[in-house]
Amino acid sequence: MKKRIIALSLISMLILASCSSKQSSTPETTAAETTTTEAVTETTAEVTTEHVTAAQNEVGFEGMTEVRANTVKEGEYHISVDSSSSMFKIADCILYVKGSSMNADIIIDSKSYDALFMGTEDEAKKADESERITYTTNDSGQSVFSVPVEALDKEIQCAALSAKKQEWYGRTLVFRADSLPMDALLTRGYTECSSLGLEDGEYTADVTLEGGSGRASVASPAKLIVKDGNVEAEIVWSSDKYDKMVMQGATYLPTITDGHSVFIIDVLGFDYKMPVGAETTAMSEPHMIDYTLYFDSSTIKKCE
Results as ranks from 00 to 15, higher is better:
residue 228 D to V: 09
residue 199 E to D: 13
residue 178 D to T: 08
residue 171 R to S: 15
residue 197 G to W: 10
residue 192 E to G: 15
residue 178 D to H: 09
residue 195 S to N: 13
residue 186 L to H: 06
residue 190 Y to W: 09
residue 189 G to K: 04
residue 212 G to S: 12
residue 175 F to E: 00
residue 224 L to I: 10
residue 194 S to L: 10
residue 214 G to E: 01
residue 227 K to R: 08
residue 173 L to D: 00
residue 231 V to I: 12
residue 215 R to N: 13
residue 230 N to P: 01
residue 189 G to H: 11
residue 204 T to S: 10
residue 219 A to P: 01
residue 189 G to D: 08
residue 194 S to T: 14
residue 180 L to E: 00
residue 206 D to V: 05
residue 199 E to G: 10
residue 214 G to C: 05
residue 218 V to L: 02
residue 200 D to C: 07
residue 225 I to M: 14
residue 219 A to K: 09
residue 176 R to Q: 13
residue 181 P to V: 04
residue 228 D to N: 15
residue 228 D to S: 15
residue 191 T to F: 04
residue 176 R to K: 14
residue 185 L to W: 03
residue 194 S to F: 08
residue 200 D to H: 07
residue 174 V to Y: 01
residue 174 V to P: 00
residue 214 G to Q: 03
residue 177 A to G: 15
residue 206 D to M: 09
residue 174 V to N: 00
residue 211 G to D: 01
residue 187 T to L: 10
residue 204 T to E: 09
residue 205 A to Q: 03
residue 180 L to N: 04
residue 189 G to M: 06
residue 175 F to C: 06
residue 199 E to R: 08
residue 194 S to H: 08
residue 212 G to L: 02
residue 198 L to E: 12
residue 198 L to W: 10
residue 205 A to Y: 03
residue 211 G to N: 00
residue 214 G to I: 01
residue 179 S to E: 08
residue 181 P to F: 05
